[in-house]
């Protein structure tokens, strides 16, 4: 018994203390760094050129990438949503983008709304969306609604709220409920159907297209100014927008590549219709939107 315990401790220690010298620590989110995500492939490709060791530290809690404690001791942060990004940072790149959109199952939902007005007036529609306090997708919806309805935002939000089945803490819960057929619509990205087509050969999931236009969301990779590996970090940030890497990102992160040349976008993604993008000047602050939402949704 004792020797088993001791050997376990030994194995444990030896695993954790073996480290290469030149380590680049990349803070990111789970689905990027997971075995099936783009992270491992990119790691291998980058390590071929840099004579270093890339280590991902990932979080599954949405929004933590902006959290001071999580980003401490990391050299590079990958996956910050553009609204949460501090543009005073020097070294950064947008590596992919997408459009917020509602996903539906075309076998279940026959009548598809063409705008938010259609959506809120359609009877018996059950929508599941993310809580804007805990999910970047959730706050994306509020921004999208506010930009398309600057004057009657509270009113349309109120009508929309009456169609909402529930607000989930994160994207995963909402999308899971949708796939489990608990709801007709789920708030996600316009590229979501690509996953089902590419990896499951399933074509019944479609994205709604609204004629008001859709809100774009971009993901950013940057080097933290506090990191002592500025040069290596810069190499990594630039590496992320190389054509071969952009292709991998689109294929495995299910988003449009930032350098969206024809060659970089996978075939099935090309066939998806790209929604019209809303034009706007300034980023909307999240706090007032959440306040309005709370007033409407909690009443």
């Amino acid at each position: 018994m004792k020797s088993i315990l001791l050997s376990i401790i030994f194995i444990l220690l030896s695993i954790n203390f073996v480290r290469a010298n030149n380590v680049l620590i990349v803070g990111t989110y789970d689905s990027f760094s997971a075995e099936w995500g783009p992270g491992p492939v990119i790691e291998i490709e980058f390590e071929k050129t840099c004579n270093c060791d890339v280590q991902y530290v990932s979080t599954s809690q949405a929004g933590t990438l902006a959290n001071e404690i999580f980003i401490r001791n990391k050299d590079v942060i990958l996956g910050v949503e553009m609204h949460e990004f501090d543009f005073s940072n020097e070294i950064w790149n947008v590596y992919d983008y997408g459009y917020f959109s509602f996903i539906y199952n075309e076998e279940k939902l026959k009548e598809t709304p063409q705008s938010f007005e259609d959506l809120v007036s359609q009877k018996d529609l059950k929508i599941v969306v993310q809580d804007p306090r805990t999910s970047p997708v959730g706050i994306g919806l509020l921004r999208w609604l506010k930009l398309t309805h600057p004057n009657d935002f509270p009113e349309i939000l109120k009508k929309f709220n009456s169609k909402v089945l529930t607000y989930t803490p994160g994207w995963s819960e909402a999308y899971g409920m949708f796939l489990d057929e608990k709801a007709d619509l789920v708030l996600s990205y316009s590229t979501s159907p690509f996953y089902h087509q590419e990896y499951e050969d399933e074509y019944k999931y479609k994205a709604l297209e609204f004629n008001e236009g859709h809100l774009i969301t971009k993901e950013i990779v940057y080097v933290r100014p506090e990191s002592d590996k500025q040069k290596l970090g810069r190499e990594f940030v630039e590496f992320m927008v190389q054509d071969n890497i952009q292709k991998i990102i689109a294929q495995m992160n299910i988003m449009y590549p930032a350098k969206d040349t024809d060659n970089n976008i996978p075939d099935k993604m090309k066939k998806l219709k790209k929604p019209r993008e809303i034009e706007y000047q300034n980023f909307l602050k999240s706090e007032p939107l959440i306040e309005t939402w709370l007033e409407v949704a909690a009443s």
């Binding site: 995500g37 530290v57 990932s58 404690i69 999580f70 996953y195």
Partner: peptide, 29 residues
């Protein structure tokens, strides 16, 4: 547990619970 591991976990250090969430977070329900 999910909170602790999501702050201190790395790619080679994940638990089953975390894996479940990771899978759900990338369409793999």
């Amino acid at each position: 547990d999910l909170v602790v591991i999501s702050f201190f976990g790395t790619n080679s250090l994940s638990t089953l619970t975390q894996t479940i969430y990771r899978l759900m977070g990338s369409y793999r329900i």
